[in-house]
Computed example of a mutant assay.
Amino acid sequence: MDVLINVFVALHIIGIAALLGGFLTQMKAMSAGTARFSPAMLHGALTMLLTGMVLVGLNQAEYQTVNNIKIGVKLAILVVILGLVYVKRDEEKADKAQFGAVGGLTLANILIATLWT
C-alpha cells in the first residue's frame, strides 16, 4: 500500500508542477497582458484534484489520521483554481488579476500542504 500511496504522491506533485509551471512560463506575458491559461494548467489542476482525492482515500483506508480541515481548505482553493482555469481556457488573453490569482492560489496551496502540520 505504501508504494501505491507514493505513486499517487508523485502524480500529485506532477500535477502541481504542470499548474505552477504553466503559470511561471507566462509571467512575462502576464506583465504584457497577453498571458493565457494553457491546457497544461487545466490538466495539472485536474490531476491534483483526482490524485488528492485518491490520497485521502488511501490514507483513510490505512486508518491514518487525515486533517480534514486542511484537506477542505486545499480543496476549496483548488476548486477556485479549476473554476478560473476552466472558464477562461478558450480565451486568447487572460486578465492579469485572474491569471495572478491562479498563481497565488497555487502557491498558497503548496504552502498549506508543506507548512500546515
Rank of each mutant, 00 (worst) to 15 (best):
V56N: 03
V7E: 12
V56R: 02
T51V: 04
L78R: 08
K70F: 11
G100D: 04
I14E: 00
V87P: 00
T106H: 00
Q60K: 15
L46R: 13
M48D: 04
V7Q: 09
M41Y: 00
A76G: 06
L20Y: 03
Q60D: 05
A17K: 00
L50Q: 06
G33Y: 08
A101R: 05
A61F: 13
L58H: 05
V85H: 01
T106A: 15
K74E: 15
L20W: 06
A76L: 13
K70D: 08
I16P: 01
A29C: 06
V54K: 02
I14Y: 07
I16F: 10
L107C: 06
I77Y: 08
K70Q: 10
N67D: 15
K93V: 14
A61T: 00
E62N: 12
N68P: 00
V80H: 04
V79W: 09
N68S: 10
Q64K: 14
I69T: 12
M41K: 01
Q60M: 15
N6Q: 14
Q64H: 12
H43E: 09
A40Y: 14
L24R: 00
A40R: 11
L49V: 13
V66I: 07
I71F: 14
A108C: 10
I77P: 03
F23R: 02
G57L: 15
T65M: 13
A35C: 03
V87K: 13
A61Y: 14
T51A: 05
H12A: 10
V79G: 04
I81E: 03
V66N: 04
P39D: 07
E91L: 14
M41L: 03
F99V: 01
G103I: 04
V102R: 01
L82H: 05
Y63F: 12
K28T: 09
Y63W: 10
A45V: 14
V80S: 06
A40H: 09
A35M: 01
M48I: 08
M41F: 02
R36Y: 15
R89H: 06
L78S: 08
V7H: 12
S38C: 07
R89I: 09
E92Y: 11
N109V: 12
L19F: 04
F23I: 05
Q64C: 04
K93I: 11
G33T: 06
Q26C: 05
G33D: 10
T34N: 11
K74I: 15
L11G: 07
K70P: 05
F8M: 12
A45T: 15
S31T: 10
G15V: 06
K93L: 12
D90Y: 13
G83K: 03
R89S: 08
N68T: 11
S31L: 10
K96L: 11
G15T: 05
V56Y: 02
Q98D: 12
N6M: 13
G15Y: 04
V79Q: 04
I69E: 06
G100N: 05
I13F: 14
L55E: 02
H12N: 15
L19H: 01
S38K: 14
G100H: 01
L55P: 03
T34E: 07
A94N: 02
T65W: 12
V9M: 11
G104T: 13
V9S: 06
F99N: 01
I14M: 11
L82R: 05
M53H: 07
L46M: 12
N68W: 12
